[in-house]
């Protein structure tokens, strides 16, 4: 089954129709989606600026990461759930959209970088993180936001 036929099938399901026709559902889910990405951005900003040596340098990196990594994981779950609802509501707007897939690739990249390069920092004997990665992660999250808004225009 191609993505196109899957999208068509999804569009025709009763739940997709209900989401589209109930006027408050899409704006509400999108608002929750933005709140959740704001939690990711705030947590990532403080964590990454600490790791880049800009902010709270008198606190240990492990302490800062320990505080905000759980927030990032929780917010990512909310993003995934609300994002899935938005796909169900409007499959063609998302699944058939190049920008949407670029966004998914960037989210996967940010997720893997956080999992593989940030989670190990929870250990007290962790090696110091590369500062370049910290700046790159902030750029990737910003790019995710840009792609998210551009989905509406492509």
């Amino acid at each position: 089954m191609s993505i196109q036929t899957f999208g068509d099938w999804l569009y025709a399901t009763p739940i997709s129709t209900t989401f589209r026709e109930t006027t408050w559902i899409i704006p509400t889910v999108q608002s929750v989606h933005i709140l959740a990405i704001a939690v990711v951005v705030g947590s990532a900003l403080v964590s990454e600026l600490r790791l880049a040596g800009v902010l709270a340098t008198d606190e240990s990196p492990a302490r800062v990461v320990r505080r905000y990594l759980p927030w990032i994981w929780s917010a990512l779950v909310v993003l995934l759930a609300s994002g899935t609802l938005l796909i169900v509501a409007e499959p063609a707007r998302t699944l058939g959209n190049t920008v949407f897939w670029a966004k998914m690739a960037l989210v996967l990249l940010a997720f893997l970088a956080t999992l593989l390069l940030r989670r190990p920092l929870l250990r007290d004997d962790a090696r110091p993180a590369a500062k370049t990665v910290a700046w790159l992660l902030l750029v990737v999250w910003s790019a995710v936001i840009f792609c998210g808004r551009f989905i509406a225009y492509t």
């Binding site: 704001a38 951005v41 900003l45």
Partner: peptide, 11 residues
């Protein structure tokens, strides 16, 4: 605008 508001809200 969205990037800015996520930074406002997040911090």
């Amino acid at each position: 605008h969205v990037l800015a508001i996520t930074l406002v809200f997040g911090t």
